[in-house]
Design a protein around this nucleic acid. Structure first.
Lengths: 212, 212, 212, 212
DNA sequence: TATGAATGAGAGTTCATTCAT
DNA sequence: TATGAATGAACTCTCATTCAT
């Protein structure tokens, strides 16, 4: 019923609709991040938005759709920030550096979203009981990172490590951040990023490159 | 009603009680690992144990206690396996190596328990809504690892990295394994461990040590 | 707000109003016939009409009124078709024959309406929980049929059966048709009508009339 | 969870369970008969039984199962009464007579059940929206009646009418009774049955048989 | 004239927990 | 020691209706 196409083109969502959907997605993200996935009932989300429960199902056909929209929103925004920062680097080594730095920067400035998306990734299941954003969903992300690393190996920037192990380790190092930052708000994101950069720079380096 | 200490002495748990508690804890672990934390209702756990739901609340004062016992059980068993393997190593470098290898070995042979404990860590909250096994709970684990690393730095085995960052990165690299092994049962644990060992060996090394 | 009579005269409904009301009644009939009474929510009706839900409550004070109008519409149209066909027959026997034939003919060509009206008759209840179109509402219909039959008895066309039993049986034989035709579209309406005519012709006949 | 088979045989339902299930089925039948299918929510049923809503889903896995059990119960009981009364008759004509009489007798003494089953037949839909006890379900009933009639035709007891039309007409004449009896409790069931018997006796008779 | 926005009531269902036996 | 029985709270979702524009 919401935002449907009409024969003569597309029905633009009204201002209020856009505002409400945005508001509801934000409240959903906040609620999940704050209370955890399991406690983020429609009632809690509505309470946070200070509206009635039914409004949510008025703008979203189901809780499932609401959460999927939230995920989409978060991913899109993150990709817009991070993507270009990596792409503009000329070498694999610099791209890996940019990969880490841009992720840390984005995460440290979007803690709520990052907590929410992790809660969702871990808990959101389809009707058949399988994780909606589980290992399979992460695959493209890992593949992209592996591709970056592989190019580095081909260019002799990197040593001959296992691509998958390295990619997973980098990803998990990054995913570790949201709870860290939330538990310790004074944590210095730049320093943390720099430490990670150095860590993985050494980890990926050819031994001979370290000489002298 | 449950075996509690009384001022005048101790009431030993009966054989049946011990057996039941063990059985229930195992079933809880399996259920959480298989269905996920949210789906692991008392009904599901009882179903898996092929007993009535009430038995659970007879032996455990609440679901909360049951899960806490399960966590305790898993931690204890893991520590018994891993602890000595690390302690017997003479140098920090070897201890780190043993740390990674013994963790990977234990995890790859206790996937159910590891999945369960991760589900619990991520989802189990107190009544006030705070994670019961969150960052605070992990602190001792991290501290121990940091101590290991610090000793290595003092002994000039390791370079001068940030202890916390390195410790977190190692932990997350290890925590990544359960879902990986479950999704890909043919994964070679030894190779994975060796890759991680090499990765963090290089990451912690002093540059000059790598020469020639 | 809706066309109501005022003391000083009458407010004629506008063209648009008439069109809308007709459209909405049609869509209501179709929806009820297709999805069943319970599934025929205002949302479904509006969807079928491709308009907003609110239009319905703009032109009809409530869902109750909408359905009552639909019933009225269906009854009126059916009566216009069937009434004259019966009236023009000279004898009771022929009128009964025409009664059955004209009903079967009308029903077989108005299946949607007939399904809808049956759904409504069976399900539509007042606020107190009583059927709005239950036995009481059917009474005039039965009385008319009973009158026809009584005249036949007085004219010695018919034997001395119980008027009410015969009338009810004839009505139910006719009411049975809509689901039959819908489930089996190849059903021959004329043959069915002829079978019913013969059936009730024999059922109403005096035994002596059947001789020779 | 209810009444499950165990390896060593069958787990008999407890006395209370049997009593509750019986009670709940009865209350369901009464509620549907009284308030209509749409108003017969679990809340209403529980209210009538003076228990909490959850008990219903404790004994029945879903509302669907509850209703199916109710249907089964009603059908079984009715068949037990009616079946033998028909079977014991030697000729088709007498069997048809017994068919009508036993149905009328059973219906007039089980009005609540008959109302309920009609409500259910008309309204109970599967998830796909199709009637659970619709035309298809009635087929065996009609087929049995058609078989009875066909034998009568073969034995030259009956004239050469269309089997399906006659069967449907007889069924509908019988199905008409529950609302009639409820609206008019003083109605004489025996007289009604006798009228129907005569009606269909004449309707099925060969013309020549009526001579003399 | 038309509609989007919003709501509260109530639907079926799940669940941890209590209690009597 | 074990369990069936029962409950109340909370869950997601549907719906007829109201209201401002």
């Amino acid at each position: 019923m919401r935002t449907k196409n009409t024969p003569d083109g597309q029905k633009r969502p009204s201002f209020i609709e856009t505002a409400r959907r945005t508001q509801l997605i934000e409240c959903t993200i906040e609620t999940i991040a704050t209370l955890g996935y399991a406690q983020a009932s429609l009632a809690q989300i509505a309470k946070r938005a200070d509206i009635s429960k039914s409004i949510i199902t008025y703008y979203f056909s189901s809780k499932e759709e609401l959460i999927e929209q939230a995920v989409k929103e978060i991913y899109t925004d993150a990709a817009r920030f991070i993507g270009p920062r990596i792409a503009e680097q000329p070498t694999a080594r610099l791209r890996l550096q940019a990969y880490i730095q841009s992720h840390v920067e984005y995460i440290s400035t979007h803690l709520t979203q990052m907590m929410a998306i992790m809660e969702i990734a871990i808990n959101f299941r389809t009707e058949e009981g399988k994780l909606r954003y589980g290992v399979a969903t992460e695959k493209p992300v890992l593949t992209a990172l592996e591709t970056l690393l592989r190019k580095g190996q081909h260019a002799s920037d990197f040593r001959d490590f296992d691509l998958h192990v390295m990619a997973v380790t980098i990803r998990r190092a990054i995913d570790a951040l949201p709870p860290l930052f939330i538990a310790n708000p004074t944590l210095d994101a730049n320093r943390y990023a720099q430490e990670l950069v150095t860590l993985f720079d050494q980890a990926t380096r050819k031994v001979t490159d370290l000489q002298s």
